[in-house]
Amino acid sequence: MSKNEIRIFCPATIANVSCGFDVLGVALDNVGDEMVIRKSAEKGIRITKLEGQDLPMDTHQNVAGVAGLALLAESGSPEGFEIEIYKKIKAGSGIGSSAASSTGAVWAMNELLGKPFSTLDLVKFAMEGERLASGVAHADNVAPALFGGFTLVRSYEPLDVISIHCPNELYATVIHPQIEIKTSDSRKILKTHLTLADGIKQWGNVGGLVAGLFTEDYDLIGRSLQDHIVEPIRSILIPGFDKIKSVSKEAGALGCGISGSGPSIFAFSKGKDTAQKVAEAMTHVYQKIGVDYDVHVSKINTEGIKIID
């Protein structure tokens, strides 16, 4: 690749991570999109190729275009860019399809411009793509895609993102039933008020999960993967959710929950072998009830977006 063009891998991500609605996220290692971004003599941003999904190529209707325009507006750069998107993450899958495109665009543009912006700046730009996709500029998918590993959005105003240590043996298993749940739709069914008792449970689990990750206490990680607020509502939209959760724990998973807004379901395990057993247990559930699915077993991606040949 020349210095005017870059090809990148943009990882899929798990957001919320059970107890951390809109604040916790983690990047996956072997699931993601590819993008090619190149400088152009023509100002502005153009989506020149989009393969794998039926998504808008109009710059103002595509999350990569909107995020990229936010970066250009801030930079004041006269440069133009062309973007090719090779979607391998299905839209509406719950593993950060829009975040992969949004972050990939701004990360690559920043590289080609000589890195004038910090990673936190890039999160802000990418959030504009999320605003287009879901109606809310949330950062729990874009932050781990850009920083790698686990991230905690401590604050949105001002934006404050913290990288969280990840135990080396932690693996994710993700199963995606072939139905689409739009993030914007899944947000509409959520309660806007919660009881103090539910809040206390949730805060305790967020603290426990973060502590478990830093201390590599796998049992604590498992005990903390509980969601008392969002999961009880969103799980109704996902076929076989309770059974998937049950068999995952029986197969040795530390814990299990909804990935993002669903319909994908994730489980964390200690070690690849256990993660594979969890994948087999999950697939048996959907085979029995006749739901088509994709399943992924992945190590945690601590690098985030990366250049590929």
Rank of each mutant, 00 (worst) to 15 (best):
I8W: 09
I8C: 09
P11C: 12
A15E: 06
S18D: 13
S18M: 11
G20F: 04
V23N: 00
L24A: 10
L24K: 10
L24T: 11
G25F: 04
A27M: 12
L28E: 02
L28V: 04
N30G: 10
V31L: 14
K39A: 12
E42V: 15
K43Y: 03
G44S: 12
G44Y: 11
G44Q: 09
L55T: 03
P56C: 07
P56D: 06
P56Y: 02
H60T: 11
H60K: 14
N62D: 11
V66M: 08
G68M: 04
G68F: 03
L71H: 02
L71N: 01
L71D: 01
G76M: 07
S77L: 07
P78Q: 14
P78C: 13
G80I: 08
F81N: 01
E82S: 05
E82D: 15
I85T: 04
I85N: 02
K87C: 12
K88M: 13
S97V: 06
S98A: 14
S98P: 12
S102F: 05
S102M: 09
G104E: 03
G104C: 11
G104N: 08
A105Y: 05
V106Y: 03
M109D: 00
E111V: 04
L113H: 06
K115V: 01
K115W: 03
P116W: 12
F117W: 10
D121Y: 06
L122R: 08
L122E: 02
L132H: 01
A133S: 15
S134H: 04
V136W: 02
N141C: 06
A145Q: 04
F150M: 15
F150G: 04
T151G: 03
T151I: 01
T151P: 02
L152T: 01
R154L: 12
R154A: 10
R154C: 07
Y156W: 11
Y156Q: 09
S163N: 10
H165I: 00
H165A: 11
N168E: 15
Y171K: 07
T173D: 08
I181M: 06
K182I: 01
T183Y: 00
I189F: 01
L190A: 06
K201W: 05
G204E: 12
G207S: 15
V210L: 13
F214G: 00
T215R: 14
Y218L: 03
D219Y: 09
Q226Y: 13
Q226I: 07
H228W: 14
V230R: 05
P232G: 06
I233W: 01
R234H: 10
P239V: 03
G240R: 08
K243Q: 15
K243Y: 09
I244P: 01
I244H: 02
I244Y: 00
I244E: 00
S246D: 14
A253N: 08
G255R: 00
P263Q: 02
A267G: 06
F268G: 03
F268Q: 01
G271A: 07
K272D: 13
D273G: 09
T274L: 08
V278T: 15
H284N: 14
V285Y: 07
V291C: 14
V291K: 13
Y293N: 10
Y293P: 11
V295T: 15
V297C: 13
V297P: 09
N301A: 10
G304H: 04
I305G: 00
I308L: 09
